[in-house]
Write a protein that binds this DNA or RNA. Structure first.
Lengths: 248, 248
DNA sequence: CCTAAGCCCTGATTTCGATCAACGTTCAGC
DNA sequence: GCTGAACGTTGATCGAAATCAGGGCTTAGG
């Protein structure tokens, strides 16, 4: 019994033992020996909000697991208009395989901690472990599903519906539900009103007005501008426009 | 010499010999024996415009290569609002691995010909050929890049910019350029004004007005409502809003 | 302490695109 | 032939969200 346990945990690097990425993230696909090999080249970083992680058209020299915090992926037009095209939460994998340079910007929306790997280590692992590729593939497909979900929101929902859909998405990603059936939720908004507006394709004034409107109607409560409480998730869902961000 | 050539083409199914999907599509990843195995279960279909290929929330029992024509991927809200979340051109691979049911609709926008495979055949191939998974992975990442590109268009571009960006994207996908430097292009719009509006998140009236406006300004010529000629691609590009749909 | 910057909210006004409405064209079916 | 449906264009009007403007709160720094 003790022997068996030894076998199981032996070889797994100490840092990885309690790591979320090993449970739900891409590292979950790795055997102990591959994990050990990867861990040798990995490094952990704590990053301040607002710091740019990957620049547009910049050479990508490392990949990372998001261990905590929220990373926003953005694209910009040359005249300054900006769109957030994705949000990454722990334990998402950050980086675009098969491409030398990134077509998007990645920036820490909140304080973020990362576990980073050199490009070469990931590429080697992709050659050696089909399981690993499989995981990366699945995450890419999930991101694709999410991107398409937001295309509907961007293209076809009204401003009130957009803001409600955003809150619902955030609640599902980082909300701590008070009761087990998730009838209510509470969370800290991981970004400013301006960020939210860049995510939803509207102005920050409109975001502000819609949040006020939701608060006035008793759908949400707001403390210190950032802390949101949703008493009835189903009431919020009803404001999202016919079955949209639900599928995430 | 002749022997060598025999070796090369032997085993490749006749139907696949001139197939675009074997050159630029996912089948290009397959060795002759895998290709032969897959071809045994494949079937070709010609599909009329408007026919639904995959229904929302429907069980997916087959995957396909698009051999010709254009397939539109759509998502709808329950009140009827619709958004086109992707377009697939030959030789794209149609279908969502790892999920039993589709979250989107797929519909033939034009006449379409497909080469279809049973779900099980694709799944078996994914187990046996890492090269094949690799190709599917790459296509998924390309689709993700495209989806994010369109998120910028949906969220941050004006109606005139949206229509210009759409024309540019179509021209690059199916346009036959008159001169080699692609200074001009000519193509048949693969979809109706209503479809275009569902792709761009605007109304068909607005699409019509913007096309008229581009025609009036001499940026495009229109024959029979569908045939578009772009004399100067760079003029069209300048109407797309600061560097947007360029990266596709 | 005061000041300036960043973030957020709210009101007034403007504008872009939606909506409503009408009409022309093409084409399938009777 | 006629009729109706689908598609496309154009004009008039309306409205949702952008823009413009001002003010409050918090925080960092002199």
């Amino acid at each position: 019994m003790t022997l068996r346990q030894d076998i199981h945990s032996s070889g797994i690097p100490v840092l990885c033992l309690s790591c979320e990425a090993r449970h739900r993230g891409v590292c979950g696909a790795l055997e102990p020996d591959h994990l050990a090999q990867l861990a040798k080249t990995s490094s952990r970083h704590n990053i301040e909000p607002g710091v740019e992680l990957i620049g547009d058209a910049e050479a990508v020299d490392c990949y990372s697991n998001v261990l905590s915090g929220v990373v926003k992926l953005t694209k910009s037009l040359s005249d300054g208009r900006q769109q957030i095209v994705g949000l990454q939460f722990a334990p998402d994998f950050l980086g675009r395989p098969f491409k030398m340079k990134s077509a998007i910007n990645a920036e820490a929306a909140t304080a973020v901690s990362l576990c980073s790997f050199p490009r070469a280590a990931i590429e080697r692992l992709m050659k050696e472990s089909p399981e690993f590729v499989h995981r990366l593939f699945k995450q890419a497909l999930n991101e694709l599903d999410e991107a398409r979900e937001w295309m509907v929101t961007l293209g076809r929902k009204t401003a009130p519906e957009k803001v409600a859909s955003f809150l619902l998405m955030i609640a599902r990603n980082i909300g701590s539900s008070v009761d087990p059936a998730a009838r209510s939720a509470c969370f800290e908004l991981p970004m400013t009103r301006a960020d939210i507006s860049d995510f939803l394709g509207i102005t920050n004034e409109t975001v502000s007005r819609q949040l006020t409107s939701l608060r006035m109607d008793g759908v949400i409560r707001i403390e210190n501008n950032r802390r949101i409480t949703v008493d009835s998730m189903s009431r919020l869902e009803r404001r999202c426009g016919g079955r949209g961000a639900t599928a995430v």
